[in-house]
Design a binder for these strands. Structure first.
Lengths: 349, 349
DNA sequence: CTGTTAGCGCCTTCAG
DNA sequence: CTGAAGGCGCTAACAG
């Protein structure tokens, strides 16, 4: 029915072992033999049986990339860069190619674990986890245990934009969310703002916490009193920014600036301000985080912190493939760059 | 070293076959036995060997989703909906779960074929291809051949937002790009526009062609003469819209409207217009396509055609899982809805 | 309901 | 450089 390696061998008049060797290219094979085999492969339209090959070799060519939200370009950009480093290589015929594959957890801890188990089951060659982690203790422990098991089984684990999971054998490229947030708020304070609203992400995420901490560091350093009612938690999406902004305005109409957990949230905030008849930045300044492509097209364009998502992703991909040395101590911090644009200005009198 | 099914069987004092049966849940097993086995699984921290299981069963639990650009929310939204229908089910312990996985072709025909081969090699249970196809004849034939082979091997193939590939056994949910584009241009013509620039996507894509054809149908039906110099080809991104708009303004400063291949392109167009000192829509109207989440936040908000990406993706996912009947004739057309917003208005005198 | 028996298709020592 | 042989871990008939 389906053509197997043995069929190819028969047609090329060699042993199955030889066919395997030319396909994997790990062993010396005479050029003429190789050519004969390759011809037979083409003629028979042979496709290697992945499961069989993985079973026998005890490894697979699958690489998993976990993202929290595949519809969010923040993850899309990273995933794209990672995949380009992994799946883009080779282009060869039967062997060599890796199947780089992205899995969408939707931010759900259960699905995260499920995907990790599924990848473990497939004996994935590597796994890259992107974006913030959930801080719930039992879940964090479960993930850490899973990661340890993966690395022990020879799967390379890389964290990209995520804090190191100590003792798991993973390599981490973490984003300096705290520092970026601090510089951003410093910028606003420098302009003269003193009443700043903060729209945070989901409460239990590392990214959320670190950005908020950076914001508060800046406030504390400047000796600015902070009203706890000026911080609202939500999600990393536009709608959350919209609703949170209306809520903040209700609580404190005198706010002169709004710092958002990310750019999408900031866009929603802008919409809410506009609908409330407030001008940006004359009445209220707005700032985002990430510098996604659409942020420069906002009107006015968005002051934000640029994270080198594509660079970090590419590096994570290379490390996952063993084509780049992991950083010393298996951890590197990636800084963000403050982008001052039209959405931030001096506060109104 | 690694714990196998046999280990579990030994510990639970049953045969390997029984363990397999409780894990797959396809066979009657006494409740007490099942429990014993499950306990052994937990105690041993056993994880099924995917390749071995796929080899023996001649099927795998892998489902591939191909996208042209994972960093583009157009694809992200569809992929997310598809994956939710496929990977979200079950949540059970060892068995049942499917590994829904997205592959980024980056719009490259070679990578598309590579990924299809890789999925074929893994004996994927289903494959969903999203978005426009490349019209290059040899490549289209190669893809069709590959799809036919996949369906023949029992892999379910679903096309989502992509024209049917005749004779391949695939199920297609196509978007009515032509009709949507026609209604959009009709709207602009109805406002009084007669000099409309068009910024198309890459020339060899079906989506590009269909949207452009719809635009031209509307022009022809209204008896509006069309200058070929008012159409510019580019890519489906912001930058392309920016540059193409500058080019169009150079060629014809008297344009009163710009129709863009999609929303990202439209945003770039808006930026270029603004920098050129033109107001939207007073001086120039702008229209996009897709109605991505950010489009409503543009200033002014974007007139566009909404495609039900999430609905279509969910349906494609269900069909891929065999949980929904394919449409009659294995093909269904999904309409877009015209969204009239602030970026389109009556042309200047 | 459960155990026994054969492979699934390939890789990888071992010889030659 | 190439062939022969064994087994990777699991599932799927068969019997019981």
């Amino acid at each position: 029915m389906t053509v197997t390696l043995a069929d190819v061998a028969a047609r090329a008049q060699v042993s199955p072992a030889t066919v395997s060797r030319v396909l994997n290219g790990n062993y010396p094979v005479a050029a003429s033999t190789r050519e004969r085999v390759l011809r037979a492969v083409d003629e028979l339209d042979y496709v290697l049986n992945g499961p069989a090959s993985s079973l026998a070799a005890a490894t697979s060519d699958l690489v998993g990339i976990l993202v929290n939200d595949i519809a969010d370009p923040f993850f899309g950009i990273m995933a794209s860069a990672i995949q380009a480093e992994i799946g883009g290589t080779g282009g060869g015929r039967a062997g060599g190619e890796r199947l780089a594959v992205v899995c969408n957890t939707g931010g759900s801890p259960e699905r995260e674990l499920t995907y990790l188990t599924l990848l473990q089951r497939q004996r994935a060659a590597a796994v890259v986890l992107t974006g913030g982690a959930v801080e719930d203790a039992p879940h964090a422990a479960a993930v850490a245990a899973k990661l340890r098991k993966l690395t022990e089984a020879g799967t390379r684990v890389v964290l990209c934009g995520r804090p190191q999971a100590a003792g798991t054998g993973a390599v981490a490229l973490t984003f300096d969310n705290r520092g970026g947030a601090r510089r951003l708020t410093e910028h606003l304070l420098g302009l003269g703002h003193r009443r700043l609203g903060y729209i945070a992400g989901p409460e239990e995420r590392t990214t959320t916490r670190h950005r908020l901490e950076g914001h508060r560091e800046a406030l504390a350093a400047a000796g600015v009193e902070e009203d706890p009612r000026w911080t609202v938690y939500g999600h990393y999406d536009r709608r959350s920014g919209y609703e949170a902004t209306l809520e903040l305005l209700r609580r404190e109409p005198g706010l002169t600036g709004i710092v958002a957990a990310n750019d999408s949230v900031a866009l929603g905030a802008c919409a809410a301000l506009r609908e409330s008849g407030l001008r940006i930045p004359e009445d209220v300044s707005v700032a985002g985080f990430d510098d996604l492509p659409f942020s420069i097209d906002a009107v006015p364009s968005l002051t934000t912190v640029r994270l080198p998502l594509a660079d970090a992703g590419a590096r994570a991909g290379r490390i996952a493939m063993g084509r780049e040395e992991p950083p010393p101590g298996d951890i590197a911090t990636v800084r963000g760059e403050l982008m001052v644009r039209g959405s931030s200005g001096t506060p109104r009198a």
